[in-house]
Design a binder for these strands. Structure first.
Lengths: 236, 236
DNA sequence: TGACCATAGTGTAATAAATACACACTATAT
DNA sequence: ATATAGTGTGTATTTATTACACTATGGTCA
């Protein structure tokens, strides 16, 4: 960019699509707005980016405020600058998505801010009508996650530290919206050699308890390049 | 995002990585700055985004000013908001990359603006030191193009309408920085069935003239989903 | 006009990866 | 003891990837 020009001024914000996975379902954290415009509507958590913080820091702040957690996996998605996306004038928003372990959150109430009446996890398959262009932002996030899960191990961000292969498979199925073959899934996933088999099993289930695994972080980086793919499987 | 808050103001710009392909080499269009900071340094073409134009429109404007062309393939890359990226304070930039047919441009002089002494195509493998974080932006663009060329037919944006298979292969080789096997490349590319064989041949070469092809647009969309890949080839 | 140069153009076999597919096992609850 | 519900495993088939070397052609130049 070039300088010495009139510094045109504009307002910009960040909005964050926070994904969680619980009981085989993908969920998104939405707030119910307590302000105009779109008062009473559901919307993505978001806020203005202060001029002395980075965009990443603004997003971390929002994530902390809504989850009480730090160190959440997050990635910038896209910057929306349509002239009509906000009824009060053009507001640019830098959208991020975040993936988090819903289990870490179980007993932690979602804090309420002045701007939101409540914050609630909504199943991705059953979203209410959303304020602004937020539905579009969620759709675009899902498209990115759906692609990215094929070549990087982001799925593990959504699972508890110890998980069963069935949980992992259900997560892939939820993200891709299609069934995978159990034998092929396990064969392939174990072949990547990024999972560490634990000497532990599920507890409290009324059927054969499944073995627990966790991600082997030493091998994580290697796989990031290897590009895991489950590309063409069609069978149930 | 939420409203009714003090509208924090900030300045933001767009920078554009314009890629071209010529004589087997990838090139980037850079301007020589005629303004402080970084006066005399090479930089990406860019400009402030006006508050009544979309970001896409700002980029189209920049592309037109520097190439005289419209309808160029472009895509948003990333938004950079580091506090120290500009010595005069935090300026957010939305980076785009664009792909264009250098041949369309052959006899067209690159226009000079007040802010730039000259605009020159630089080979990607031999870039000068760049102003701001522009080197980082170019690297990130290349990473995206390198990935995206595997699953979408963006390569054709860089070639003339009629091209030989060797040109197409050289382009993939330039983008991936490694040699591909000619027979495997042709077999695979022709199998996608997205190329239309023309009844024409190269002219003016002092060796056997190669057949010309062009992209078959009817089949283009289908391949966008099919995910062309040349993943593991290691042989020269 | 024939030899030469530079690049175009072609096929097959070996290996690796993806896919389709079905049944026995086990922990728990009743 | 038995019903239930989900765990855990192996193989054959198909498809994709890789490795590899020679002939064909158009143009140039002696």
């Amino acid at each position: 960019m070039q300088s010495n020009l009139p510094h045109l001024q504009s307002t910009f914000t960040t909005d964050c699509v926070i994904f969680g996975f619980h009981e085989g379902e993908l969920k998104v954290l939405l707030i119910e707005r307590n302000e105009y415009p779109f008062k009473g509507w559901w919307a993505l958590p978001g806020f203005f980016v202060d001029h002395n913080e980075t965009i990443d820091d603004a997003v971390k702040r929002i994530l902390y405020e809504h989850t009480g957690l730090t160190g959440i996996y997050m990635e910038q998605l896209y910057t929306f600058g349509g002239l009509k996306r906000h009824p009060q004038g053009r507001i640019i928003t830098v959208a991020y998505y975040a993936l988090l372990r819903l289990d870490d959150l179980k007993s932690r109430p979602v804090p309420i801010t002045d701007f939101a009446r409540q914050a609630v996890w909504h199943p991705l398959n059953d979203l209410p009508e959303l304020a602004f262009d937020h539905r579009h932002i969620i759709d675009k996030s899902m498209a990115k996650v759906r692609r990215k899960i094929s070549y990087s191990p982001i799925a593990f961000e959504l699972l508890p530290e110890k998980f069963t292969l069935t949980q992992l498979q259900q997560l892939y199925e939820a993200i891709w919206g299609r069934k995978l073959d159990k034998r092929n899934f396990r064969k392939k996933m174990l072949n990547y050699n990024i999972l560490k088999e634990l000497p532990e099993f599920q507890r409290g289930v009324s059927y054969r308890a499944a073995r627990l695994y966790r991600l082997d972080k030493r091998k994580y980086a290697r796989v990031f390049q290897n590009e895991m793919t489950f590309s063409r499987e069609t069978n149930g």
